[in-house]
Write a protein that binds this DNA or RNA. Sequence first.
DNA 1: GCCAACGTTGGC
DNA 2: GCCAACGTTGGC
Length: 151
Amino acid sequence: MSQFWLAKSEASVYSIEDLKRDKKTLWEGVRNYQARNFLRDEWKVGDKVLFYHSNSNPTGIAGLATVLRVGIPDPLQFDRRSDYFEPRATKDAPIWFAPEIKFERAFAEILTLDQIKKMPKLKGMQVLKRGNRLSVQPVAPDEFKEILRLV
DNA sequence: GCCAACGTTGGC
DNA sequence: GCCAACGTTGGC
């Protein structure tokens, strides 16, 4: 039974269109422990990932991806020149992880934050919670179903 | 650009 | 371990 997630990306940095072009990508650069724990411990091959555009116009859910591969250490933590370099990490004891996801679909129109707020069935979504900055969030099966119904 | 929320860092 | 200072996220 696959699980459902929402993952945020700034559209100007990496958008659903970029994923469409690349077909697949490593979900790298996550540097928050709570989000890391989801990526490392909870994401399973076959899980569905709602691709959320943050800091964009409009902001909202832009498409859908599937988890292809898990347990991959984020390569950027070993790259001295990267902003995401992690001096404490070693190959034997990586700290950050980057699952590989594959493009599934880009929604014809972004399901905007405003629209999400208006849907009674989506009221409980974490992404609506005030001050929530977590870039990887679990999504309930009912919420996922409702979102796919709307796009 | 502002600012609320909140995670991280580091002095003690 | 506490907590103030600081940095980052992200909606607006």
